[in-house]
Design a protein around this nucleic acid. Sequence first.
DNA 1: TGTATATCCTACCAATTTAGTAGGGATTAA
DNA 2: TTAATCCCTACTAAATTGGTAGGATATACA
Lengths: 141, 141
Amino acid sequence: MLSKKTQYAFKALEYLAIQHGKGPVKIADISLHQKIPLKFLENILVELKNAGMLESKKGKGGGYLLRVAPKNINLANVIRIINGPIALLPCVSLNFYEKCKDCDEATCGMRKMMIIARDATLRILEKKTMADMIKSEITIE
Amino acid sequence: MLSKKTQYAFKALEYLAIQHGKGPVKIADISLHQKIPLKFLENILVELKNAGMLESKKGKGGGYLLRVAPKNINLANVIRIINGPIALLPCVSLNFYEKCKDCDEATCGMRKMMIIARDATLRILEKKTMADMIKSEITIE
DNA sequence: TGTATATCCTACCAATTTAGTAGGGATTAA
DNA sequence: TTAATCCCTACTAAATTGGTAGGATATACA
């Protein structure tokens, strides 16, 4: 399951995607409209920024902006930044790989199954973007 | 990610699947061959039993057995028993549904995406069985 | 240059979950 | 009746989750 933090990240990105092209959006605005605890949201946005997904401007008129268009932000990436691995086992994760001890990867049946599952999940999460997400959404405000 | 408990559950079921038809298998045997802490394994097996997946016999010559053939145990079921929901959000879970507040399910874009992702994952996890899992495995012992 | 407006940084916290362990009780086969 | 086996209740340490507190830093603008 995705953590609440990750759900908040998606909600924040939704809002930023809708406002895309209209200049910086304040944390307080996002917090208010998407009902996300303000201080918690600060942490989340900094993480997304450090990962290169957002940029920020300080001072009056400042706020956060998407660095790329909503259609270029896929859901898998967001999950990886805030939530961590998408795969069901560390030893089948593409971005957070960890070898499992006591298991020969070449012959491990569990591993083979989890690779197939991972690929099915990723096919969706890497194809779908923030643009898809807000497309079906009723406009906020 | 699956908890270690869930990984142990799969390892235990693998062993029981391989021994299927040969009578009861002792916890100590499973623990030894699959390198699972014995007391922890006890808890896991009781849960699988209470969920109807295993049966047990006490006393000498006793142990655990699969209640159905390996090909009838799909991976989604095991995960649900030990790990919990497979979906990425409570509000899109088929077996552990919880309504999310502050969200209109009819129009929530995040929800729509996560339903698609869930279905892709489930298509694999509900089709693949313990028989598939041990098929590609080198026989233990 | 000063002040209001923003983001940013470090640190802390309580509650929950995870990954076990301990110790004995109940049941059964021989 | 005794040894083997599963079963049950309770406990624990460490990590994770979901935040909060307080101030530092940068910027726009008068």
